[in-house]
Each structure stands twice: as C-alpha cells, then as structure tokens.
C-alpha cells in the first residue's frame, strides 16, 4: 500500500501543474511579452570628428568650427526588426536639425552630421530617440573657435 501511494503521488502533482499552467496561459493577454521587448539595443553612440570604415574617428566633446563638420554615430546591436530612430541636434535648447535613420536586422550602425559655421559656436546636444519619441541617449558637446 505505501509503495503504491508513493508511486502515484508524483504523477498527480505533475498533472496538476500542467493543468494550472494551461489555465494560466489562457489568462495571459496576447502579445504582452513582445511589446515590452525593445526592437533594438543601443550599443554605442558618440559625437566624433569623422567616420572611417563605419567606425567613429576621434570621438570628442569639443569641436573646432574650423574642422567644418561634426558627426553623431550610433550603433545598434542587436536589431530585432526593422525600425527607425531620430538624431535630433539642438543648439542650447533650440532644435536645429532632425534626421530619421532606418535600422535593419540583425545589427546596424548609422550616423548624421552637421556643418559647423562661426555662428554655431556654443553648447550643443544630440538626442537619439526611437520612433515612439523615447530618448535613448543624449550626447552633449561644444563647438568652439
């Protein structure tokens, strides 16, 4: 008798767990887990003097306007599905330039750039935002003589 009970009890518990699992699964709203999952992960973002071979060169926080251009480089790894991001360039608190960049799976690097003139000297920032306008990263730098 005791042996029989001992053999039967584990089978009953596992069956109970399966049933509970199935019932619980029915109550989970469809797509909850997928919605929370980000479409991409920002691996790296810098402001740099130029781009060479898809890599940023001389990332810095102060740029001389005599160099003519400044770049914002962002790298996403992984990218789960095709999406887009924005590079918003601000001088002080004023939006100067916004660029939409498309990202493709499985990983993607993209950049935007602005021309530097004498009148542009001062503090700048680039906000990297996703399609839902969430800020992924803010990069701050200065343009100087």
């Amino acid at each position: 008798m005791p042996d029989f009970n001992a053999r039967k009890s584990p089978f009953g518990l596992s069956r109970l767990l399966i049933v509970c699992g199935l019932v619980g699964f029915l109550f989970i709203p469809a797509g909850v887990g997928l919605a929370d999952q980000p479409l991409m992960v920002l691996a790296d973002a810098v402001v740099c003097e130029r781009i060479s071979n898809f890599r940023p060169v001389n990332p810095a926080v102060v740029f001389s306007v005599s160099q003519g251009e400044v770049f914002c480089f962002s790298e996403f790894d992984p990218v789960y599905e095709k999406t887009a991001i924005f590079h918003n360039w601000y001088k002080k608190d004023k939006l100067i330039f916004s660029m939409r960049l498309v990202l493709s799976v499985p990983k993607w690097a993209s950049f935007s750039r602005v021309q530097m003139r004498d009148a542009d000297k001062g503090p700048w920032r680039v906000e990297i935002r996703d399609e839902d306008n969430n800020i992924l990263k803010t990069l701050r730098f200065s343009m100087s003589d």
Binding site: V61, V62, P123, S144, D145
Partner: peptide
C-alpha cells in the same frame, strides 16, 4: 535639470578633449 559645460576658445593644436 542637467548641467552642460560651455567651452570657448580653442584647444592647443594636436589635443582633443575626449570626455567630460
């Protein structure tokens, strides 16, 4: 609110400010 440094002038040649 966040604080941002405001630089002026020019770094000596050959130097670069990589981070702050």
């Amino acid at each position: 609110v966040p604080v941002q440094a405001d630089f002026s002038g020019k770094l000596p040649d050959g130097l670069i400010m990589t981070s702050i």
